[in-house]
Design a protein around this nucleic acid. Structure first.
Lengths: 203, 203
DNA sequence: CCCGGACTGGACTTGCCGGTCCATTTTTGC
DNA sequence: GCAAAAATGGACCGGCAAGTCCAGTCCGGG
């Protein structure tokens, strides 16, 4: 199935429009007709580019959005090499979700239900892994320059921080309040900055 | 609309069956027929007890599940008066979600989409508030006996801890791994135990 | 210029699922 | 017991939305 430039453009237009639609309506109440209206395309085009129908489209949307999530945190996320970098990153995350508000493009992936779930869940899992790896790399980097206690388990700290972020976002989604995300980020970073050699594991 | 004991029993059977069905299928792929089959009832009964249809039923399920979430953490959650109590509580939370696995009964409420959303969201918001209040009360109690630095903002610490828990659960939901929840809990409690007078706000 | 394949439009089919309706049985209050 | 009210069973309806189909149009290469 060769793809002319024009076709590729249409395909991308569909994905982006669908992503916007998902952000507004959520995956489940979203109808293909919504996407068609929003992107000025027709059913036949949609099924031409996504023979798998809604499932395949949602998967493409999930991938698209997952890339955005990581992308929006760059370049800081990949260069957490100083405390100012951490703080800038923190602000970027908060700003991103403040702007996004209560629209969550990835409930597709998080909800383990729905038709496109299995694939989308893999996308979500990969996103979380990339995210956590970036945080762990940042922590290790800070350890190597002596800014974080070398005894800490970088992966476990990254896991806890990531959990705080995710929870903050979820709470934002259900209550509309940003405070939890901010508190989790601040407390997580503050905790890293403490250079005590206290064990980080189970108290 | 008086309710005979028999009627009340049927109504409750429907709610509990529906809750189980939601846990398995999620809200959106769940059909009323599923509930009927699972509870051995008929359509007319369901609409007899829930004139509002699926929306009203889902709301009842949300309330039911929210109560369970808090209830499953008792009595510890209401009596976080010593470190052992905190640890027992921590274990209870982990055990509860380990058992629950990837079934989330409250995606009803978290997903801001769907028909029953507005009411269900209020349920979720109230659940989070009760939860956070209990944690904050525990923190204040520990402060009053000198086990936690009195300078800390109890509400903000509770918010961060709650965010960690929620995030841990979300990650469990999408990846099936418990580690993040454990890490978030352990790190959150460990952080509380540190009696330094370091400020807890934005670094 | 013209042919084949990519691309587009939109009517149509199909199945599912929430919700309605009424007929029947069981329970309750007296 | 015996009305009246509550509880139950299940057939039926209607709409909606995913997916199909074919009839066209556009475009690139020879």
């Amino acid at each position: 199935m060769p793809l002319t430039p024009k076709g590729a453009a249409t395909k991308q237009r569909i994905v982006e429009g669908a992503a916007a639609a998902v952000r507004r309506h959520g995956v489940f109440t979203l109808t293909l007709d919504d996407v068609l209206a929003l992107t000025s395309t027709s059913k036949s085009q949609l099924f031409h580019y996504f023979p798998g129908g809604k499932d395949e489209l949602m998967l493409a949307v999930a991938r698209h959005e997952a890339d955005r999530v990581i992308g929006d945190q760059q370049p800081e996320l990949s260069a957490l090499t100083s405390w100012p970098a951490w703080l800038t990153w923190r602000d970027k995350v908060v700003a991103r979700y403040r702007e996004q508000g209560r629209e969550c493009p990835l409930d597709i992936a998080v909800s383990h239900i729905g038709s496109a779930s299995s694939g989308a869940q893999a996308v979500a899992a990969e996103l979380l892994e990339r995210w956590q790896d970036a945080l762990a790399a940042g922590i290790r980097r800070m350890q190597s320059i002596g800014e974080i206690d070398a005894a800490r388990d970088a992966d476990r700290s990254a896991a806890a921080l990531l959990a705080g972020i995710q929870g903050g976002v979820v709470i934002l989604l259900s209550t509309g309040r940003l405070g939890h995300l901010e508190a989790a980020l601040d407390q997580g970073i503050e905790d890293l900055r403490r250079r005590s050699r206290t064990e980080n594991g189970r108290p």
